[in-house]
Design a protein around this nucleic acid. Structure first.
Lengths: 247, 247
DNA sequence: CAGTGGTCTAGACCACGCT
DNA sequence: GCGTGGTCTAGACCACTGT
């Protein structure tokens, strides 16, 4: 085996985990891009000097993590954020009536390059001078303006994104296509808050209206913190859905 | 192989999935109880007439689902709801300051056998006459009464539970120990609401206070709907945490 | 030390999708 | 028909645990 050849135990991880990491790195580097097919199990096995079974274990693990998807008789592919599965993996708001016939739409209000406040700077661990992009938009579900989103991105990772006049509904797919940044993990923190003046204006709700606030920090495939997002939702007709232990 | 012997394809599932199902059934039947050790891979393989690799695949799948846990050099065990991992799998409220030094406590307010209203009866798909148990309690995190819980259980599954004067902090462990019901899957539906009169009294919050409402439906290992729970939380100092794609 | 799960390999055969 | 992933087997060896 070529992976372990030089020294007996410099890192000492199981082979299949090394293969897993190696494949992830190649995707991060853009060698294999979202939507593209990987070499077959046997080709990868030859390439890396391990057995086909070991490659299989690595590929299956990455499939579990939604990095790859496999189609029997066809091949193994790098996941895209356009896949139904991926869209709903990171979007948990649903209409109360369960209707999923139409996708939520997004209306851009404002995009600007700003010098972040203390809080945002601290979250991204940025030096004082560095700037972030702020995106302000509204999402509508079944025609109702239900969610107000404030999205913060480190300007260094998303060069010139603030100059775009239009942004697509699925930002994660946009990140992937234009900046080779794949959102892979995220943490959502939920609270109930009261609508402030801006919320009231944008979501057209009265003072005293309770809103569901979701604060998200999202990391890319290589573990960098790439997005901080605050969503404030009028949960009159929608809810945030969490499935526990579903596979 | 003995599992497939009689007919070539009556159900036609992969062998390892049949093994998986068979093991799950034995746990449901109480043959192997929470905390107990299973036979070794080779013993199970002999018992079921399949190879050790096939048993391994089934056991690993069940470990992924938190039905089992494995300790190298020791054995494979049936999961208990006392395990740290299990506790936090089904309890997503956290203190804002991240302090987890003390577990949340629970104070029982009331337990009664009731004839359910239309909504509850519909959820459980119960006939008109059948009763449910209603548990009302308060959870405190770091000394603050933060969450009000209303829990509904079909009386037929939890015989005489309403007669208990005391209930432990971890109800899921209690269900497991006393009724051999293991909560396995759940769906949480989150909304922001305003505190009603009862909420105000119990949680000691003013009128107009926004609360985080979590409505849970929970299913047991064999897929029965066993619990319906409404939690209303004062999210001043706590939040509901969701991890996406973490393993 | 014996016994358990964890890794790795090699090979056979099946099921599927494309062309 | 061919190439892909999916299943199943058998066996070797490693790493960990408890006695």
């Amino acid at each position: 085996m070529t992976l372990n050849s030089s020294k007996p135990a410099p890192t000492f991880k199981p082979l299949y985990q090394q293969v897993q990491q190696l494949i992830t790195e190649r995707i991060v580097e853009g060698v294999w891009k979202p939507g593209e097919v990987l070499p077959s199990e046997f080709q990868l096995a030859d390439l890396l000097g391990v057995s086909q079974g070991t490659v299989r274990k690595a590929l299956n693990a990455l499939t579990e993590e939604n990095v790859l998807y496999r189609r029997q008789g066809v091949g193994t592919f790098v996941s895209e954020h356009t896949l139904q599965k991926m869209l709903f993996h990171f979007f948990h708001f649903k209409s109360d009536d369960g209707d999923v016939s139409e996708l939520p739409s997004a209306q851009l209000i404002d995009t600007q390059l700003i010098t972040p406040n203390e809080e945002i700077r601290h979250i991204f661990e940025l030096p004082e001078t560095e700037q972030v992009i702020e995106i302000h938009r509204i999402r509508s579900i079944k025609g109702n303006a239900s969610i107000r989103e404030l999205i913060y991105l480190p300007a260094r990772y998303f060069v010139d994104l603030d100059k775009e006049a239009k942004l697509p509904h699925s930002l994660y797919h946009y990140y992937q296509q234009h900046f080779n940044i794949t959102v892979h993990k995220a943490t959502d923190c939920l609270k109930a808050v009261l609508a402030n003046k801006d919320d009231q204006a944008v979501l057209k709700v009265p003072a005293g209206q309770p809103l569901l606030e979701v604060t998200r920090t999202a990391r890319s495939l290589d573990g960098r913190l790439v997005e901080y997002r605050i969503s404030r939702a009028n949960s009159q007709d929608i809810h945030y859905l969490v499935e526990l232990n579903q596979r």
